[in-house]
Design a protein around this nucleic acid. Sequence first.
DNA 1: TAAAGTAGTTCATTTTATAAACCAAATTTA
DNA 2: TAAATTTGGTTTATAAAATGAACTACTTTA
Lengths: 97, 97
Amino acid sequence: MYEDLDNLLLSQLRLAAMSYLMVVKEADFNTLKEQTGATSGNLSVQINKLQEAGYIQVEKTYRNNYPLTLCQITPAGIEAFEAFYLRLQTYFKEKPE
Amino acid sequence: MYEDLDNLLLSQLRLAAMSYLMVVKEADFNTLKEQTGATSGNLSVQINKLQEAGYIQVEKTYRNNYPLTLCQITPAGIEAFEAFYLRLQTYFKEKPE
DNA sequence: TAAAGTAGTTCATTTTATAAACCAAATTTA
DNA sequence: TAAATTTGGTTTATAAAATGAACTACTTTA
């Protein structure tokens, strides 16, 4: 049977953000925006969802007088991402009977 | 950069249906329902979307006096599924340098 | 001090996902 | 043989999600 997929990761933008953070561990808002190609509004919303789920940790500070939103992947986020990857495999391995 | 993902396949149920059809090529409504664990209503809707996209071909006939909905994956469906798989890789390969 | 730029957030709209309710025909039960 | 049940789905109502435009707040530049 096909394993359940985490709906939070079944989204292009959230998956891209998580994928990027899996490698770099931490990134600011604009870097994530550039890397994912997202609009600011969309990214803001999706970052909040990932944070609410505990997949990333968000720290709001300042850099050069400007607001700076830093996102870090959490252990729960890493686990979720890896689980998602494994579960996804069940959809791509030759399976029936 | 992360490659665009086909939204039609970025759905658990449609992906499961397509994954199953990739292997068996053809299946009836109830088999798909069992294999994917979907409800009838949901499966009906998603089958229509896949058909509208040309990813599957649907033939409605009868078997033992009962309606029988047969779904076959199309060449376009196979291509889309394979492309989806490849594009998905860009999210799971270590990328940022 | 007005205009433009930076870094985001909120909101309004459209699109989806989903199960409940429904339908038509066949079959079983009483 | 009429009523109830089963089969094989479809339609619909509702909630949830995705998205960009509009907005906020502050800073820098002219």
